[in-house]
Structures are given as C-alpha cells and as structure tokens.
C-alpha cells in the first residue's frame, strides 16, 4: 500500500489543463493545411498528384478535402510547394462540405441543435465501432480515457452496448464484412442519437478509399453529425470536436 502511494507521488499529477489551456503539440505535428486558395498557377497538377483525390481546383480556387486528406509528411500534391501544414489541431466540422478547405478561416463544428444539446450536453454515452480501422484511430479514442485527457470529467463515456448509448462513434472505412454490423449497431441505439465519424477512413475511406472491399466511410451510409479528420486525428482533435459538438468550447 505504501509503495503504491509513494509511486503515485513519484508519478505526479498528470491530467492536462485542457480546455483551459491549449495543448502543446510538437513542432513537426501536421494540423490544418496552410495555403492560399487563390492558386496563381492554375496548373491543376494537384488533382492528379494527390493519391487520395483530396485536391480540386474550381475557378482558380484550390480546395483540399480534409475528409480525404491524410496530412502526409511528403504531400506531393502541389509541385510549387504551396501546401504546408500548420500546428492547428482543431479540425472537426458538422457538415461534410465544410471539410472542403480553401485556406483562411475554418468552419469549426457548431454545437448540436437545442433539442439534442439539451439531452446530451452534459452526458453523452457513445458506442465505438471499428469497421476496418487500423487500430490507430481506435487507440486515439481509447487514450481519451487515460488520466491525461480524462474524458469522463466532461460527462462523455464510451459504453459497452449500443442499447446504453446515445450514439455511435465510427472508425475505419466500413469494410464490406462490417457493413451490416455497423448498420445494426446504429439501429440498436435508441433515438434521438448522434453519429460521429473519426479519422480519414471513417469520413471518406482514408488510405482505402479505392479498395474493392471497403465503403467510403460512413458518409454514404448514415447521417453524420460530426466529422473528425486526420489519419489518425490527434486525441486533442477528437476531444476538441466532441466538446464543440456539446457546446463546451
């Protein structure tokens, strides 16, 4: 017993000050892309060069679809080198089209509408489903339960059964072999409910967007309330998104 207490003392108090203090992310962390949507060259090379189809040029304006983007360290998309990444980890949005980013202000997620906010604002129970996720997105959800992030202090909890849940949080591109299990789990959650897609896979298929064995994430299967991009998203990106959805940030 004394050893446990002394070790506890030795390990110190570790719960982060988030959201009162912004997290310190390493300088090489790749967050919100930094580029100017007004493309001077108009070469449209990025449309071909991004292997995941994340770039599109419309009327000289370049947009990166953050729902498809993997935040690659060696992003080959722009031959002029106009795409770099900032340290901004806040990426969650409410609508799919908000992920088409052309630089400038980013439309961060708004809270749920009043009816559901009233129900879930102070207590949100989520059933996590992995459907072809590589276990990195899953790990970054799991880590929110550790004492550094301490998800429970926000009234958010992952639960064991869809029957106990207010919504599902999905990771993975939705493999064909998991498709019906995902839909069944969604059905089993009593309404009203929320659906959260975490990671490039869950949003749009991620690295597996062109696989014959996967769907393109949840987008085409279920109505999604919150999109959290990244491959995988940083735990703070997920936490920030959840808190915004509940109107807590």
């Amino acid at each position: 017993m004394w050893r446990v207490i002394s070790e506890r003392f030795h390990q110190g108090f570790r719960t982060g000050k988030f959201p009162l203090e912004e997290p310190k992310l390493p300088p090489r962390f790749r967050g919100l892309p930094r580029f100017d949507g007004e493309c001077p060259s108009g070469c449209r090379a990025c449309e071909e060069l991004c292997p995941f189809g994340a770039c599109a040029v419309r009327e000289r304006k370049m947009a990166i679809d953050l729902g498809r983007c993997l935040f690659c360290a060696d992003c080959p998309a722009c031959p002029q080198g106009r795409i770099t990444f900032s340290n901004d980890y806040r990426l969650a949005v409410r609508r799919r089209q908000d992920l088409l980013y052309s630089g400038g202000a980013y439309p961060l997620a708004e809270p749920l509408e009043p009816a559901r906010l009233k129900l879930f604002g102070r207590s949100l129970k989520l059933r996590q489903v992995s459907a072809g996720g590589c276990n990195a997105c899953e790990a970054d959800c799991n880590v929110l339960n550790t004492l550094v992030f301490d998800l429970g202090r926000f009234g958010i909890q992952f639960v064991a059964s869809p029957r106990h849940a207010d919504g599902i949080l999905l990771t993975g591109p939705v493999t064909e072999n998991m498709r019906s299990a995902v839909l069944d789990t969604y059905e089993a959650v009593p309404g009203p409910k929320v659906v959260i897609a975490v990671g490039a896979c869950g949003v749009n298929g991620g690295p597996f967007v062109d696989s014959p064995e996967t769907n393109q994430g949840l987008g085409t299967l279920l109505p999604v309330d919150l999109y959290i991009p990244g491959c995988p998203p940083h735990p703070y990106t997920i936490l920030d998104g959840l808190l915004r959805l509940l109107g807590r940030r």
Binding site: C72, P76, A131, G133, S211, E213
Partner: peptide
C-alpha cells in the same frame, strides 16, 4: 471483418497510395 484487400491493391504497384 477488417479485410481491406491490401495485397490485391499492390498488384502492378508500387502505386502512389501504397506507402500510406
């Protein structure tokens, strides 16, 4: 359940998406 057909997608590769 997690099958994503990674080996078949490597055929005729390496492709630009392969490393990811």
């Amino acid at each position: 359940y997690q099958h994503r057909a990674i080996e078949p997608m490597l055929l005729a590769g390496p492709h630009p998406f392969t490393m990811a």
